[in-house]
Simulated assay, not measured.
Amino acid sequence: MTSRDVPITSSELANLWMTFQEKTMIIRMLEHFIEHADNAEKQLLLTHYNNASKAIDIIKGIFQQEEAVIPIGFTESDVQKGVPKLFDYLFDIMYLHMMTKVEMSLYSLFCGMSYRKDINDFFINLTAEAQEINCQATQFLLEKGVLVRPAFVSMPKEVHFVENKNYRNSFNLFSETRSLNTIEVSLIHHAIETNLVGMQLMIGFAQVASNKDVQNYLVKGMKLSKKIEIDLGEFLRQSYIEPPATHAGKATTSKIPPFSDKLMMYNTSLLTSFGLGSNALGGAFSLRNDLPAKMALLAKDIFTFAQDGGKIMIKNGWMEEPPQIEDRNQLTK
């Protein structure tokens, strides 16, 4: 018996379905970016575009073999060709850098939830592809001088163990708050870096959204990204570290939408979910109790924002329903 003779599990079906949604969305985004890209950027964008297209074909093949309906995802109707570019200098690679971070996290998780060998191999390959593109995008942006490295620090010369209970305590009025450790700095830097790109994405999306509810929602997303950047940046400043910033990747003044409202809402939803996960990770690994407290407050805001977005998507018929488990309760009625 080959692996393809084994039916796919509920988790494998769910993960393939989610990957189909994400991949069909990102190729629509890349189509707009590729249309306006310089030669230096275009090759990297095309590589990820071709990888995504192959992944979509593989998923379609698995669904056809299993006699499952192929999802709709995002189609050519969700992107408008021949319109002015919505984002300026190097935003396309900054977006790619951010989205491959999301993909690396998703596909690594999906690997651990896959049991059929061909599907497990599929997600292992997707993880490797995302890692490779992320590495290339990182080096590209560093060479262009638009990606800020995290703070450099002196290398430790001795091993220490925490002895003072105040190591975790930042609310004690009678003791000085300790500086951030390197784990905390890395998590804060990552969150700020991601939200800087997310904020520009929300600005661009908001100025071309056709639906007024969507436009207002995306403006809220812009303000939320700014709040996260400011609040977390203050932790770095207290330790005399400047938060990351960049002069590149701004939204243009174009008001002509290259993307459908449905696509922009889904992209925002995906990044919001990623933001919730990143906040949870930041809170869990911080050993200074004021940082998890701030992360928890921000997580509440992000969760509320995600809930509001879901309502808008459902109201407009934009939320494709994931495969459903049979309702066994109906048998007892």
Score class of each variant (00 low, 15 high):
241 I>L: 06
220 K>C: 10
238 Q>M: 10
236 L>N: 07
246 T>D: 09
234 E>H: 05
216 N>E: 13
210 S>W: 00
238 Q>I: 04
230 I>Y: 06
224 L>C: 11
238 Q>R: 10
231 D>W: 00
245 A>Q: 10
221 G>Q: 08
210 S>E: 14
240 Y>R: 13
245 A>K: 10
236 L>D: 08
231 D>R: 08
233 G>V: 07
234 E>R: 03
241 I>C: 08
243 P>Y: 02
246 T>Y: 00
244 P>V: 12
226 K>H: 11
215 Q>R: 05
233 G>S: 11
205 F>V: 13
214 V>Q: 08
229 E>L: 03
204 G>V: 02
231 D>G: 02
234 E>L: 02
226 K>M: 07
242 E>W: 00
220 K>Y: 05
246 T>R: 01
232 L>D: 07
210 S>K: 14
214 V>I: 09
211 N>G: 04
229 E>A: 15
209 A>K: 04
227 K>G: 08
204 G>Y: 00
206 A>P: 00
228 I>S: 06
234 E>M: 04
227 K>F: 03
204 G>N: 06
205 F>Y: 15
204 G>P: 11
236 L>I: 09
228 I>V: 10
222 M>C: 14
239 S>A: 14
232 L>Q: 07
233 G>I: 05
226 K>E: 14
228 I>K: 01
247 H>N: 14
206 A>Y: 04
206 A>G: 11
204 G>W: 00
239 S>R: 01
248 A>L: 09
220 K>A: 14
236 L>Q: 05
205 F>G: 15
223 K>D: 15
215 Q>M: 04
238 Q>T: 11
235 F>C: 10
248 A>V: 09
244 P>F: 09
227 K>N: 13
207 Q>G: 11
249 G>A: 12
243 P>A: 12
233 G>Q: 05
206 A>K: 09
215 Q>S: 09
249 G>D: 15
207 Q>T: 04
217 Y>E: 01
237 R>I: 09
241 I>D: 01
225 S>H: 12
207 Q>S: 10
220 K>E: 15
225 S>W: 01
238 Q>F: 02
208 V>R: 10
236 L>Y: 05
230 I>M: 10
224 L>E: 14
214 V>C: 15
243 P>N: 08
221 G>H: 08
219 V>L: 08
233 G>L: 06
229 E>F: 06
204 G>E: 08
244 P>L: 12
243 P>K: 02
237 R>P: 01
247 H>W: 03
247 H>D: 15
217 Y>Q: 03
243 P>G: 12
242 E>N: 14
246 T>H: 01
237 R>E: 14
210 S>I: 06
241 I>S: 07
206 A>V: 01
240 Y>M: 09
245 A>R: 08
221 G>M: 07
236 L>P: 10
230 I>H: 08
205 F>T: 14
215 Q>D: 00
233 G>E: 07
230 I>Q: 09
206 A>N: 12
214 V>R: 07
214 V>N: 09
226 K>G: 13
232 L>N: 06
210 S>G: 13
206 A>F: 02
233 G>P: 03
231 D>F: 02
245 A>V: 12
224 L>Q: 12
211 N>I: 05
205 F>W: 08
209 A>L: 05
229 E>T: 15
244 P>T: 13
241 I>F: 02
232 L>T: 08
239 S>L: 04
227 K>W: 00
246 T>G: 09
215 Q>W: 00
237 R>H: 06
230 I>P: 03
215 Q>P: 01
240 Y>G: 11
204 G>F: 00
218 L>W: 04
209 A>Y: 03
224 L>R: 08
207 Q>V: 02
